[in-house]
Simulated assay, not measured.
Amino acid sequence: MSRRARVSPAEAGLPDGGARRRTPGLRREEVAVLAGVGASWYQWLEQGRDISVSAQVLDAVARVLRLGGTERRHLYVLAGLNPPAPEVAPDKRDMCEGLRRLIDTWMPYPAHIMDLYYNCVMYNDAAAVVLGMRPDITQNCLVDFFTDPLYRARSHSWERNARTVVAQFRAACAARPGDEGYQAVLDRVSRASAEFTALWEEWDVEEPGQVRKELEHPLVGLLCVESTAMKVPARPDLTVVLHTPLDEANTAAKLEWLASPEGRRGAMYPVAG
């Protein structure tokens, strides 16, 4: 009812006839006509009665009421249906500067942001120094996990984490069936890595969460970190991955040294590995 009151007859393409209305916005009967449903059925929908509701009808109602993405998903939840995949609201598309500040504030610990298809959108300096993120690799976190020799040489936990990485990618693909973007990444990494293909055929599925990583850095030795993947509700197309030092191998102090002027000078010189 509150959303119906927000839409004027003129905005909905209806003539108002110049008559004064007792209540603002559209009448129930007008919403029903514009959505292509019966007036009684729409009234029952507003009243929350136990009626059969389809996604197509809810989308029609959402269109007439001019619901945003979050409101449309909420309507699905109220009706007892699985909500559609989140979409980025037009006014939330320009959040990159704020997200850049977020991962830069995470220094001296590694952090990066990737899109739906695991393409790296941005990373901080610690991710470059510790994880080996750099411009001359594919910039796709899944492909680089299986094909970047530098990361593989540093990672003591590569074999253990590979299964998790593949299972999480399968879960992401399953959430958006038929998405050509996922298929393109899948084709690319399958051609590049037989190890990926073998793990993909095991059909494991896992939601993103926390992953333990053990890395051997050429300047400071063993680093033990825990990566946490987090979604940004306003930008459901992005995932922020933050790495936190574990209480092992003096990891926090080593990461702080790598980010210091002395550590940065040391990283300027070629070191094996």
Rank of each mutant, 00 (worst) to 15 (best):
G132S: 01
A126W: 01
P270D: 10
A272F: 13
M95Y: 14
S54N: 07
A174R: 11
W44I: 04
E207P: 05
A172D: 12
D59P: 08
M1R: 08
P9D: 06
I103W: 03
F169E: 08
A127P: 01
D136H: 13
E226M: 15
A194Q: 12
D115V: 04
A184F: 08
P245M: 10
G68L: 03
R49E: 03
G80K: 09
P135M: 08
P208F: 08
G263C: 05
Q139I: 10
E87Y: 04
E202L: 10
R191E: 15
A171P: 01
R176M: 09
S8R: 10
V211E: 12
P24T: 03
P208W: 04
K92H: 15
G132C: 04
R170N: 09
P108F: 09
Y76V: 11
V53P: 06
G36L: 08
V31E: 09
L58Q: 07
P177M: 03
P270A: 12
Q47L: 12
T70Y: 02
T228G: 10
V61E: 02
T228I: 12
E159H: 11
S8I: 09
E226V: 13
A175N: 02
D204Q: 14
P9V: 03
V185L: 05
V129M: 13
D179M: 00
D16M: 02
D179Y: 05
V33Q: 15
V33C: 07
R154E: 09
D125N: 11
I51F: 06
W41V: 09
P208Q: 05
V220Q: 08
Q43P: 01
R100T: 13
H74S: 07
E207W: 11
G178P: 05
V165K: 05
P15D: 13
